[in-house]
Nucleic acid binder design. Structure first.
Lengths: 217, 217
DNA sequence: GGCAAGCCGTACCGTACGTTACGGTTCGGC
DNA sequence: GCCGAACCGTAACGTACGGTACGGCTTGCC
């Protein structure tokens, strides 16, 4: 399993200059393919390779720092499950679906996932673990409390929150991520994403919605 | 979109010797990461690099031929939608789900998808298109007639076969493929796959099954 | 001012790998 | 037996790139 990310917390220990360097690396990663070279990063960031090596150790360190830096930027707002009505639950689910679709269809996510997938194929799987931890598992960690609250309020019925989450994940993402990663053009407009979020939420509620209605009152 | 695979049909124009070479490349791709070198392939296949270049042009040609060769091996049996009862429809869906889960969790598929994803990130997207065409789109092409037959028989209700298929795809695959590609260990036993196939099929039928029962009789 | 630290730009080194070239061997056709 | 084609094994070439070294510049501190 190993969803452990043993590395430094970051985003606090980074100087402003280092952040701009990582931003440059990120932009380069998105524009060019995953084959970013140290020389290219140095040139783009207007810094010397010597500095890159001093700060990040080696190419893998730079890659890892870049991925973690991006990950630290996408902390989405926590949703508190305190409103617990069917309307607010639906809205929350749609919101999660929408956010997730926007993330996985963004150029940044695609580039980062590509490099992480390639990295996972070549020995050390650090990047894959980082991306997974800040993507799929972070989503689960934020969504599960909402699901549990929905069950508590009698709006949802499921035995295992993990299983319910994975179904929701599948209903939202479907074939989008793998198609994008494999280079399929797939125009996802704001409207299409919104529609997909609503559809996925409705399907999820059809599968896991309580048939008896709220039993709390 | 471009799901066009403009290259040669293959698998007919290949000699036995060439097939064994591609098998060697495939094995190497699965064992080592995606960083297979021409030298390694030549050594493993006991052939000269000169021969590799004569047959496949360059490294990309070899990669493409390898992917297409594997693709040509996984033509799954077509399911005829002529039994059209709820039981046989369910069985067909479960069969598809089972086969698909086995494919995407196989070492070969993971390795091939990894190299294709990496390739899609670096300019020419040929490999990605090939993998997509022989994976997700081939599955759709085989499954849609079954869905249409199910609708014809009054067992399913949906407006668009493509949309219905994508939902099924999401229910079956969920987060499995991306987790595996990112290096997550994820033991998928035969039993777990079978259970997931049944669950996905039941969920799909719950969403798209006709509420009125078969109207054909 | 003097000085040390940090950093930029660039040149440099070693290596890995894609690609090419070539000598030697096998094999089918005459 | 002879010839040419195909192919194996290996050596060689060119380049790209990770990593290192160094000279010069700025900056903050004494």
């Amino acid at each position: 399993m190993l969803h452990i990310v043993p590395d430094i917390d970051n985003s606090e220990t980074l100087t402003e200059r280092q952040k701009t360097v990582l931003d440059a690396a990120l932009r380069l990663l998105v524009e060019e393919g995953d084959d970013l070279t140290m020389t290219a990063v140095a040139r783009r960031a207007s810094c010397s390779k010597e500095t890159l090596y001093k700060w990040f150790g080696d190419r893998d360190g730079l890659l890892t720092a870049t991925v973690q830096w991006q990950a630290s930027k996408v902390r989405v707002a926590q949703v508190d499950g305190k409103g617990l009505g069917l309307a607010s639950l639906t809205a929350s689910l749609e919101r999660f679906a929408c956010d997730w679709l926007k993330v996985i269809s963004s150029d940044t996510s695609i580039a980062l996932n590509r490099v992480a997938v390639g990295h996972a194929g070549s020995g050390k799987d650090n990047l894959g673990a980082v991306v997974l931890e800040n993507g799929r598992f972070a989503l689960a960690k934020r969504l599960k409390p909402v699901l549990e609250a929905g069950r508590q309020a009698g709006l949802l019925e499921f035995a295992d929150a993990e299983t319910a989450f994975r179904t929701f994940f599948g209903l939202v993402g479907r074939d989008v991520q793998i198609r994008l990663l494999l280079g399929d053009r797939l125009e996802l407009t704001e409207a299409a994403i919104g529609g997909d979020a609503i559809r996925a939420t409705q399907q999820f509620l059809a599968l896991f919605g309580a048939k008896t209605g709220p039993q709390g009152l």
